Amino acid sequence: MMVGATIIDIGTRKALEANGASIASGALAQANDASYDIVSDGGGCTDAKFIISGTFTTAPTENTTLAVYAQPLDIDGTNDADAPETTRPTVFVGTVQVNNVTSTQYFELLAENVPWKANYYLHNNGTGQTLSAGWKMDVIPYTSSPSA
């Protein structure tokens, strides 16, 4: 490897949601199996890769999106930000575009500077169809650094 080339340091994958409830088009749901803390879960990495998978019983409108939102926790002692709402996302993390298929879809969302500690939510942002129960969301911490 060239000295000074950028390398990626990858942390341990954590399941935020292993079997999510269905989400109607225009609604959102919390990935409520676990929160994510960049110190205790991410080894101090401020960047994260979110891995999302799910299916639609009826094909959604192609190129519409699923959005990821965060609810920062322990902002002031144990005081948290308000939970995201469909009309007020709290902290927007990013979106992935859906395909118009009913087979399982897999998405990768790279996010920089995620909240230090947060709950995460998935918003079915107008796909026109319900995201079926059983969707999943994992997070993998990462950071880039120059090689020695």
Rank of each mutant, 00 (worst) to 15 (best):
A21G: 14
D76G: 03
N99R: 15
P84Y: 02
E108Q: 09
A81M: 05
L73D: 06
I38R: 15
T55D: 13
A59M: 06
T61A: 13
T104I: 11
A59H: 04
E108Y: 09
D37A: 10
S35N: 12
E112G: 09
G54I: 02
T65E: 12
V39E: 13
T87M: 06
C45F: 11
D80S: 03
C45S: 15
A15M: 11
V98W: 05
I23G: 01
T64D: 01
L73S: 03
N79P: 00
P115N: 10
K49E: 13
A83H: 04
V98M: 06
A18C: 02
T104D: 08
L66Q: 04
S25G: 07
N99W: 10
K49Y: 11
Q105L: 08
E112F: 11
Q105I: 12
G77V: 05
T104P: 12
A29K: 13
V114F: 07
Y36N: 03
K49G: 07
T104Q: 15
V101Q: 11
Q30R: 15
V114C: 08
A34H: 09
D82C: 02
Q97E: 12
G94Q: 04
N32G: 15
V101H: 03
G42H: 04
A15F: 10
G20F: 09
A111T: 11
T95H: 06
I75H: 00
I38Q: 06
N100E: 10
Q30W: 08
T57W: 09
D41Y: 09
N100Y: 00
N19V: 02
A29D: 13
E112S: 15
T57N: 13
Q105Y: 09
Y106V: 03
T61H: 04
L73F: 00
T61S: 13
L109G: 06
A83N: 07
L109P: 07
V39N: 10
Q97M: 09
T86N: 08
P84N: 09
W116H: 03
E112D: 10
E62G: 02
S53H: 04
D41H: 07
T65N: 14
Q30V: 14
T65P: 01
R88N: 12
C45W: 04
P89D: 06
S53D: 08
N99T: 14
Y69T: 04
I51Y: 15
A67R: 14
L73T: 00
F107N: 08
S40L: 09
F107W: 13
G94M: 08
A81V: 01
V39M: 09
T90S: 10
F107A: 05
W116E: 12
V114T: 14
I23N: 03
N19S: 13
E62Q: 14
V93Q: 05
N32F: 07
F107C: 05
L110K: 09
Q71C: 07
Q105W: 12
K49H: 12
T90H: 00
V91G: 00
T58V: 14
G42W: 08
E85T: 09
T58E: 12
D76N: 10
N99H: 11
A81I: 00
P115L: 11
G42S: 03
P60E: 04
S35Y: 05
A29E: 15
T102G: 01
A70C: 04
A24T: 14
N63A: 11
V93M: 12
T104S: 13
T46R: 15
G26V: 10
N79R: 02
E108L: 13
V68C: 06
D74Q: 08
G77N: 01
A31Y: 04
N19G: 06
Y69W: 07
A34M: 06
D47L: 05
I23H: 01
A29W: 05
Q105C: 05
